[in-house]
Amino acid sequence: MDERPVDAGALIHELEGHLLIEATRGEGRAEASRFTRQFEWLTDSQRAEVEERFAEEYVSLARLSWRRTVQRGAELRGEYEEAYRVLRRRLVAGWVFGMVCLTAVAVLAVSCV
């Protein structure tokens, strides 16, 4: 047995991934079966072959879609983080400018009295 501590988060993500793939495979098989019903002239072995290939392609397309979604999510995250940094800099600069102005007004008010 390995003595390293178990990372529960990684384990959960791995389990979720397996469940998602299995659900997608089930969807692919169901869609493949629905698709091949229209081809009444196929033999049972041909139908099974078409269904298998259809299901494999279904899973491949789903994985490609997931990868693109992850990539786009990372891009959006970067864009939003940059926008947040810019807004934070503006807010801090505005706050500092306001404090400088308030201090200057206070100094002028004290010096005029």
Rank of each mutant, 00 (worst) to 15 (best):
69 T>I: 01
45 S>Q: 10
79 E>C: 05
29 R>L: 03
73 G>P: 02
20 L>D: 14
73 G>Y: 11
35 F>T: 13
31 E>N: 02
34 R>F: 00
4 R>Y: 04
17 G>S: 11
52 E>Q: 11
48 A>H: 05
49 E>H: 03
8 A>M: 13
3 E>F: 07
55 A>C: 02
52 E>M: 04
66 W>K: 15
86 V>Y: 00
65 S>H: 14
94 G>E: 06
2 D>R: 06
89 R>P: 07
19 L>G: 10
101 C>L: 12
91 L>Y: 10
40 E>C: 03
85 R>Q: 12
45 S>R: 01
104 A>E: 01
90 R>A: 02
91 L>N: 12
70 V>P: 06
109 A>L: 04
34 R>V: 08
58 Y>E: 00
78 G>H: 08
17 G>N: 09
88 R>H: 13
58 Y>W: 14
109 A>E: 01
111 S>W: 07
29 R>D: 01
6 V>M: 07
73 G>A: 08
3 E>W: 03
12 I>A: 15
69 T>E: 15
20 L>H: 01
112 C>P: 04
61 L>A: 12
14 E>C: 12
50 V>A: 05
9 G>A: 06
4 R>V: 01
39 F>T: 07
99 M>A: 01
18 H>F: 04
52 E>K: 03
90 R>M: 03
41 W>T: 12
31 E>K: 11
83 A>L: 04
42 L>M: 10
109 A>C: 06
70 V>A: 09
47 R>M: 08
11 L>T: 07
77 R>P: 09
103 T>D: 02
107 V>P: 02
95 W>A: 12
89 R>M: 12
66 W>A: 14
85 R>S: 09
58 Y>K: 13
45 S>C: 06
13 H>A: 14
50 V>W: 02
109 A>D: 07
34 R>P: 02
75 E>G: 08
103 T>R: 07
29 R>S: 00
75 E>M: 03
95 W>I: 02
61 L>R: 14
3 E>N: 09
66 W>M: 13
56 E>W: 08
111 S>Y: 05
7 D>H: 11
111 S>H: 04
36 T>Y: 09
47 R>F: 05
27 E>R: 14
74 A>Q: 10
24 T>S: 10
8 A>L: 05
94 G>P: 03
17 G>A: 13
88 R>K: 11
54 F>M: 09
49 E>L: 10
34 R>L: 04
2 D>S: 15
64 L>Q: 09
50 V>I: 06
88 R>I: 03
113 V>D: 08
53 R>W: 12
74 A>Y: 13
99 M>H: 06
58 Y>P: 02
85 R>K: 14
51 E>W: 02
56 E>F: 04
43 T>H: 12
80 Y>H: 11
84 Y>E: 12
49 E>T: 03
35 F>Y: 12
65 S>V: 00
47 R>H: 08
1 M>E: 14
91 L>M: 09
113 V>Q: 13
85 R>I: 10
75 E>D: 06
77 R>N: 15
57 E>F: 04
99 M>I: 08
85 R>Y: 09
112 C>D: 00
83 A>R: 06
45 S>V: 10
59 V>E: 02
86 V>L: 11
107 V>I: 11
82 E>R: 13
